[in-house]
Nucleic acid binder design. Structure first.
Lengths: 343, 343
DNA sequence: ACAGAGCGCGCAATCGATTGCGCAATCCCC
DNA sequence: GGGGATTGCGCAATCGATTGCGCGCTCTGT
């Protein structure tokens, strides 16, 4: 519990001034080789570690990087968190984890905290409806938006080709012979929800398939919604032969509901999940799913944030990076029982 | 990017001294009601937020809490992280996430960083073989050990009844009629690995069942080991009729291997998983698994850490809290094909 | 041998919040 | 009405690292 030694302690030990100690540890050229060596050795011996608070105060900004996520239990975000943590660790930054539960109030509070901590910058998956002040704070601090994009703030955005993801899913089902395909996704209030649904619609349209709006469910991002949506879809007089999901959590809920309802997958219903994790391979004969290059995306975003906060950064138009998802074809999709001829 | 306003700005605005501003915001009784109100309103108007670095410097300790985990993608740890993040958020602390990958070097580096940041304390799931300096740093900072216990440091420890967990698993299988039961767990170099194996052994012994050491696999904590261990077990001339796993990651790997090998679960092999997550319910007819009260445990541990760092804390003997796991009986366990009579 | 150049190091201010001490004004009571 | 008590606020130091400036010493060239 005793305080770690400071530069003052080292200076006293060696009968030097604090300035000299500071310059030695900073590798300043104005210090003789010998003195530097003595200082470095004494620092090590005494167990000196720099006081980040003092440095932050002096420099006006800390080495803290914020990560603002709706849900850390979500495999998608925890994978991203791991990648981001790795990047931060490499560069000697502290990663502050802020979980919002998609609650704008919590989100704002976390943003305020990060501002209090004079965070160097942050990576944010914006909540569905950020508060006004949240937007202001975002504009006032270097940051990147991750996956979701809140267009009310002009920021750099690192996302996935959401439309393409759904095109892959829908195309796969269409190729298998499905014509009546349901969609369960997140609200169109978020960019990702909008783009995914858009991609789904377009693909079906391009294939000349009419969309039954009763089979299109877009709502909240949680497991419960997925469950309820699937329930509603199964209760339709003319249930679909396939379902596409467009969100990791709701995908889980939807699949859970289908299983609980005794629907045979894939013989009675083909199911395309969203996002990937080791456990998903277990579902029945494995889950056909949309895989996202999460780690790559997260590392790209973090690197960019660091470059941006660096001194040599020229600010230009907001950067926009989109990585392409892929589809993992496994056992939860198959041709429909009776292939229906295209209309 | 412009600096947030400071107390000095507020003081200038109101033609007061910085001291008065500070005392007003700190709700000191030595300030008139009117002045306090003016200060508070000006602070709000200017968008003042306290500079945590300055406060940390003055007080000698920041409001940062460290969370040192081997793997944030593990559902067990991410659930704990969520609970801990919630606690921190409630109390206005920043949670710094440090992922070690069970690498002692990374672990040490993170500990050094937290010391640099003058962290208030930390919650650590110790790596398998912490470095000497890691132990020293642990002793020098308030912390609690979570789940795993490194007995080389006398700390407060919040864990689960590991022996009891395995007793539940083994007992369940024995009651179903199994007599040849394999064990796949983590290395006995960690406390949890030791205690779990111990619990497994004792339960079988108590039931008068001899243990075939060829069916006992204890190794690293990862998915790969689980896979390999299961492979080895299935290759035995006399394979078991049931398997108990004692770790979330290796449980996944083991199950994966069994499936890949075409072993029918539960008819040819009963399988007890470890830890729980929404997706686990999907495996075949659902996975029988050991459920751990993660959230409760994490919140208890965090609360304790806060109490410990508080001023009114009387230090006594290290605290030791053990919560009890439960077993979720689902579809991956059943009676063996031919019940074997007890020896 | 002397002036100027260059090297090595210390002084002191700074960042923002906090706090012990002190000063002035008002108040109370007898 | 006067002395002590109380109230309301400012001064200045402090935490630890960083940095512009300057001082003294050594070295070099002529």
């Amino acid at each position: 519990m005793k305080r770690p030694p400071t530069m003052k302690d080292i200076a006293a030990e060696l009968e030097l001034s604090v300035s000299t100690v500071a310059r030695s540890l900073a590798d300043s050229p104005r210090i003789s080789r010998e003195t530097r060596a003595r200082v470095v050795s004494a620092a090590e011996r005494l167990g000196y570690v720099i006081d980040l608070a003092a440095r932050a105060m002096r420099s006006g900004t800390s080495s803290i990087v914020g990560l603002i996520v709706p849900d850390i239990r979500n495999d998608f975000y925890s994978t991203a968190a791991k990648a981001i943590a790795d990047c931060c660790q490499e560069r000697g930054h502290q990663l502050v984890l802020a979980v919002t539960d998609d609650d704008p109030k919590l989100e704002l509070e976390h943003l305020r905290n990060l501002r209090s901590a004079r965070a160097l910058g942050f990576i944010i998956i914006p909540s569905v409806t950020p508060a006004q002040e949240t937007l202001r704070l975002m504009r006032a601090t270097p940051h990147v938006q991750f996956v979701r994009n809140c267009s009310k703030v002009e920021s750099d955005w690192f996302g996935i080709e959401d439309g393409e993801a759904m095109r892959l899913a829908a195309r796969h089902l269409i190729d298998l012979g499905h014509r009546r395909i349901a969609y369960i996704g997140s609200t169109v209030a978020i960019s990702t929800g909008r783009d995914r649904l858009e991609g789904f619609r377009r693909t079906l349209q391009d294939a000349g398939i009419a969309i039954d709006e009763r089979l299109v469910k877009a709502g909240s991002c949680d497991t419960e919604f997925g469950f309820a949506a699937m329930q509603a879809i199964l209760a339709e007089p003319q249930p679909p032969s396939a379902v596409v999901t467009a969100g990791a959590r709701m995908s889980i809920g939807a699949y859970d509901c289908a299983r609980a309802s005794g629907v045979a997958i894939p013989s009675a219903l083909s199911f395309v999940g969203f996002s990937d994790s080791p456990t998903l391979r277990w579902c029945g004969a494995g889950l056909t799913t949309i895989a996202l290059p999460v780690r790559e995306l997260a590392m790209t975003a973090t690197d960019f944030l660091f470059r941006k906060t660096g001194s040599d950064f020229k600010t230009g138009r907001p950067c926009r990076v989109m990585l392409t998802p892929s589809i993992l074809k496994r056992g939860s999709t198959a041709a429909p029982r009776r292939a229906i001829e295209p209309v």
